[in-house]
Each structure stands twice: as C-alpha cells, then as structure tokens.
Amino acid sequence: MQNSEMAGLINRVAIGDRQAFTDLYRVTSPKLFAICLRILKDRGEAEEALQEVYIKVWQKAKSFAIGSGMPTTWLATIARNHAIDIIRARKPVNDDIDEVFDLADETMPNPEQSVAMADDGRRIDACMGELDQVHAQSVRRAYVEGLTYAELADDLRVPLNTVRTWLRRSLLKLRECMQR
C-alpha cells in the first residue's frame, strides 16, 4: 500500500470511520504485531499489547492528521513505544543517568538550523556502515529488540559503561554523518 493511501486511511480513522480502521488494521497489524512480539517475546503478551496499540491508533489518529511524517513510521513508533514501556515497567532499569555526558570534543551542528524531517541527509544505512561493526550491531539490536544497556553489556560481555559510551558516541557519529 502506498504511503499516501495509508495516510488517507489514518485521516479517515480520525473522523471516526470504522471501515477505514478495519482496513488499516488488516494492512498494518502483521508489522505492528511483529514489533510487539520481538520486543515482548511472548505471543499472549504481544497480542494484548497489540490491542492497546490499535486503541491508541484510533484515539491518536487526529494527531496524525495534524502532524506529518510517514504513516508507517507513525504506526511503528506507537507500537515500539508501547512494547518498550511494558518491558521497562516489568523489569525496571537501574539507570543512574549521568545527565551530563562526557563526550567532549564531539562537535554538533546547531539543531535549530538542521532539523529536517525529510530524508534529505545521507541514509542511516550508509552512516551505519561508517561505524565500528560491533557498535553498529549494538545500535541496531538495541532498537529492534528493545534492549537496555545492561542487557547489551551482558550479551557482549563488556562493562556497562563501555556499551553506553559506544552507543552514545555512535549516535553522535550517525547524526554528524547524516548531516554531512
């Protein structure tokens, strides 16, 4: 389905069109279910989460109509956020977040000038290729599987602070690369 068609469906959901909601569910639920399942790792829980996700879709459709962006991204974000909230609530993370990051000498463009929603920079795939391979894999696994720093550290058998520094530096490098 074209993005414009899917955006049209969401806009009709926003005005309470139940048929559009049924169609949207039919087209998008396999993807959103896959997201819930991958992050929650339990079919029953993923199906419960999927219910909540589509109830949010119904309720938030108006905010999509007003905002912009790709409909697939909007939907996937609702699903990921919900699934991640569930696992974080179930297994609290002890993150004494050091709010002031110690990543001196990284230079960043001014976000005010450079935030553009369009995919006008380099694609993230190209920029991921510029990262150390282990770091790139960590970034991707954190995103796709919804892992915490501690889980990544256990998995990779490196200290937690090391993983945290890898990911934070990777984020800055990705941003710098995509704006190049």
Binding site: Y25, L50, Q51, A76, A116, R123, I124
Partner: peptide
C-alpha cells in the same frame, strides 16, 4: 521525531506475523 524518522529503516528487521483473529474482535 528526526531520530524516529532516521531509524525507521530498522523497522525492516521486523518480519510480519499474523496475530490471531480474536485480537481485532477484542479491539
């Protein structure tokens, strides 16, 4: 929002799966 848009291509890693039909009925 920009990170969400940038990282959206990672969503390609999620292989589509069919939920049971009971889910939509419950919704």
């Amino acid at each position: 929002a920009r990170w969400q848009s940038n990282m959206a291509s990672f969503n390609g890693d999620y292989q589509e799966q069919q939920p049971s039909t009971a889910v939509f009925q419950a919704i």
